[in-house]
Amino acid sequence: MPALAPSAEQWQSLFTLYIIAAVIVGGAVFVMFFYFLAKYRRKPGTAEPKDAPRVGVMEDRGNPALAAILTALLVSLFFGLTLNTFALNAFLQNPPNDPNALYVDVIGFQWGWRFVYPNARELVGELRVPVLNSTCTPAVRGCWSGTVVLNITSADVFHSFGIALLKIKRDAIPGRINQAWFVAEKVDIYPEAIRCYELCGTGHALMIADLLVLSADNFHDWYLTGP
């Protein structure tokens, strides 16, 4: 699938890493589990094991080293996974220091999303952003770099703002402003890409907004023809 944003790509890589670990570890455990179930099923005519439990009697069994070995293995695995998680988290949590970024206030309400632009332009149910523009570096001014920083809050109850295609999510909490950011790499229209991810009343399913990624010029034209 073509990349839509670095956040999505990096999320996908991390997810793949966890999937690989899960398949290897889970696979090994299940293979062992089913192997034992098959190998040690009761064969008619053979006697019971000598230490079979009976009422009030169960012998000690097992090697305590099991705990140490498993702990060491899992800690090593988790160390690797966690380092990668923290790296992606640092990326997702920290908007770049970009003077050409677009700052949009996002207000969740029962039941929709309102987007307020720096020039007080407002949209409901639709988020328009400029596409990534690599030539618009911090040294250059008067252009949109494509970095979008969202200041997310709620006008009433606890909502959660998410753009699944970009793997962006942040809770929209009344009385707080939470920040999220992304860069969209492709001009396109993504209908219904933005949804609410926390039950917020009877209209929870209807809190939907479209995401429009426009070319720099188109975005700029639209931006200026308001409010």
């Binding site: 997810f15 889970g26 179930l37 997702l92």
Partner: peptide
């Protein structure tokens, strides 16, 4: 046997949920 097998699967997806970064997709 069913309980153990199903729990193993649930436990593995739990490790995915422990990741504060992967949670941007999974939450809610």
């Amino acid at each position: 046997v069913g309980s153990l097998g199903l729990f193993i699967i649930g436990g593995i997806t739990g490790v995915f949920n422990s990741s504060v970064a992967l949670d941007t997709a999974f939450r809610g």
